[in-house]
Design a protein around this nucleic acid. Sequence first.
DNA 1: GGTCGCCTGGTA
DNA 2: TACCAGGCGACC
Length: 259
Amino acid sequence: MPELPEVEEATGRLRSAALGKTIVRLRILHPALARRFPARAAAAVAGATIQRIERRGKHQLLHLDDGRTLVVHFRMTGDWEVGRVEEPEPRFARAALDLTDGTRVTLTDPRALATLTLHDAQSAPLPALGPEANDPAFTAEYLGQALAARRGAIKPALLDQRVVAGLGNIYAAEALWRARISPRASARALSLERRRRLVRAIRDVLDRAPGGRYWIGEREARWKVYDREGKACPRCGARIRRITQAGRSTYYCPRCQRS
DNA sequence: GGTCGCCTGGTA
DNA sequence: TACCAGGCGACC
């Protein structure tokens, strides 16, 4: 589920369900997650109150009243499901936060790749991240600096969260289509004019994305190039092509997206 | 930079 | 049965 708009929407649901509430217990429900999140860490959050909930890039930070931070990253398929403690666990439940008012917030994740980490007050809870796409600091000039030292193509560079925080594979492809830039174009050689178009396109794509689940319904209507290999480019009619870059699929129009 | 591994499910 | 998947960190 996770690119920025979807994470933002999920963070909103988490806030409604959990903000200001106290944790009865945190249960880790999947062995892969338990390996990375030991039982004693889970036990250690009992009794803490969730004071503030923040999103940064695709990370969600639950600031506890004792200064520690619980950080959640959905990776590919994570999501929150809100229910009551007396209800059965939803399918694909990987971790559950039981709260004192009887609310239960469950981390669901079919692929079990989502991460949950606990950070004490002193340690930095997040890796280095670039500006948010909607941050005024995310400009064509900034992008020029951020890309100046890179060797490769623009598309993999856009997935680097240190360049811009929150962009994922789908929206990176969609933004490049909007900006008419080939995903294989050299990142550091992009002109100012193309960087301007790209910054605008990234903002547009993220703004337009409905907060809901993008993998259910209306796919065809919503994606211009993503997952449309062999279909017609909505702008010029050429066949959309799929290539692999940095191990990920990239979809693009070979006619109207130029290097 | 590119590739692999993490996990599991959905789909061709 | 095989392939693909919205992410990302470790590794070359």
